[in-house]
Amino acid sequence: MKTALIIRHVPREGVAGFREPIEAAGYVIDRVDVDNQDFHALDLVAPDLVVMMGGPMGVYEREAHPWISCQLKLLARRLAADRPMLGVCFGSQMIAAALGADVYPGPTKEIGFAPVTIHDRDGPLRHLSDVPVLHWHGDTFTLPEGAELLASSPAYQHQAFRKGRNVLALQFHAEMGEDERFVDWIAQDMDYLTAAGQCPDELRAAHEVHGPRAVAAGRAMIAEWLTGLV
């Protein structure tokens, strides 16, 4: 039986809409939070699939979050073994950093539903073409050496990349759109939203309008990606 380990950096950012295609592909899902006292002892090479979700911290905030350095070491071992891994938002930045890329604050806070430009029209991300997906970040990264750029937005060139067939990194949140925790995202990030000039009511309305379509496209993307894993 195949195993999938979900790494949560904050409780409100779980696997959400991606749970369905992962379970449909035959994976038994387990979850670990980075504040677990045994996190440092994890064997991240062992699970058949590792999924790292988002979080409000930056990869460069290692003094404030000592587990970041620990997690990067664990990720490096998994990447060296070329084991399947998916990263979302902060998770994608962690993959980039573990591959030797620089992660740093971007020019603006990108928040809200908007489509991304898909560069690989034949790959799994084609399901997202012209579909507004959720963005909620202010950091970005250089493209890791040997990685293929898959998607961009007007504000951020590096929205998605893959390294071989087993590593997929998504800056945006195609898993969010039907999860009730979106309310917590807004409540917990009010200062962040205010600084970005975002209106909570408008975000909630956009979530109602675009969420189901975004999640359906995200599920199709992940389902297809999983079938191509080595």
Results as ranks from 00 to 15, higher is better:
residue 190 M to N: 07
residue 174 A to L: 12
residue 159 Q to P: 09
residue 16 A to G: 03
residue 51 V to T: 06
residue 42 L to N: 01
residue 185 W to I: 10
residue 80 A to E: 05
residue 107 P to I: 00
residue 78 R to F: 10
residue 132 P to E: 07
residue 65 H to D: 10
residue 217 A to Y: 02
residue 172 F to Q: 03
residue 113 F to S: 11
residue 28 V to T: 15
residue 6 I to V: 15
residue 205 A to C: 11
residue 151 A to G: 05
residue 95 I to G: 01
residue 129 S to P: 00
residue 171 Q to D: 01
residue 224 E to Y: 10
residue 146 G to N: 10
residue 79 L to R: 09
residue 79 L to M: 09
residue 35 D to T: 15
residue 24 A to K: 14
residue 23 E to T: 06
residue 84 P to V: 13
residue 180 E to A: 15
residue 179 D to M: 02
residue 15 V to R: 14
residue 180 E to S: 15
residue 108 T to S: 03
residue 75 L to G: 10
residue 26 G to D: 12
residue 189 D to I: 14
residue 17 G to D: 02
residue 41 A to E: 13
residue 75 L to S: 13
residue 25 A to T: 07
residue 65 H to L: 08
residue 195 A to Y: 07
residue 87 G to S: 02
residue 100 G to M: 07
residue 192 Y to D: 06
residue 136 W to R: 05
residue 207 H to F: 00
residue 48 D to V: 00
residue 29 I to C: 04
residue 205 A to R: 08
residue 129 S to G: 02
residue 19 R to W: 11
residue 90 F to T: 15
residue 181 R to G: 05
residue 78 R to K: 09
residue 68 I to P: 00
residue 44 L to G: 13
residue 226 L to N: 03
residue 70 C to R: 11
residue 50 V to C: 06
residue 179 D to R: 04
residue 89 C to K: 02
residue 157 Q to H: 09
residue 132 P to S: 09
residue 31 R to I: 12
residue 44 L to Q: 12
residue 27 Y to Q: 12
residue 148 E to F: 07
residue 207 H to I: 07
residue 178 E to T: 12
residue 202 E to W: 00
residue 90 F to A: 07
residue 174 A to Q: 05
residue 71 Q to H: 03
residue 55 G to C: 08
residue 84 P to N: 11
residue 150 L to F: 05
residue 132 P to F: 02
residue 54 G to A: 09
residue 108 T to R: 00
residue 87 G to L: 01
residue 85 M to Q: 08
residue 171 Q to E: 04
residue 135 H to E: 08
residue 227 T to F: 15
residue 11 P to M: 14
residue 203 L to Y: 04
residue 56 P to L: 01
residue 168 L to G: 00
residue 101 A to Y: 03
residue 57 M to Y: 02
residue 128 L to R: 00
residue 142 T to I: 03
residue 106 G to E: 00
residue 152 S to N: 09
residue 163 K to G: 11
residue 18 F to A: 12
residue 54 G to T: 15
residue 120 D to W: 02
residue 57 M to A: 03
residue 65 H to A: 05
residue 106 G to C: 03
residue 181 R to E: 06
residue 171 Q to K: 02
residue 123 G to V: 01
residue 14 G to L: 12
residue 52 M to C: 05
residue 202 E to Q: 11
residue 98 A to R: 08
residue 70 C to L: 14
residue 95 I to N: 03
residue 213 R to I: 02
residue 92 S to M: 15
residue 30 D to R: 07
residue 27 Y to P: 12
residue 120 D to Y: 01
residue 50 V to S: 06
residue 162 R to M: 13
residue 127 H to W: 06
residue 124 P to K: 05
residue 4 A to W: 07
residue 116 V to E: 05
residue 33 D to W: 07
residue 83 R to H: 07
residue 58 G to P: 15
residue 5 L to A: 12
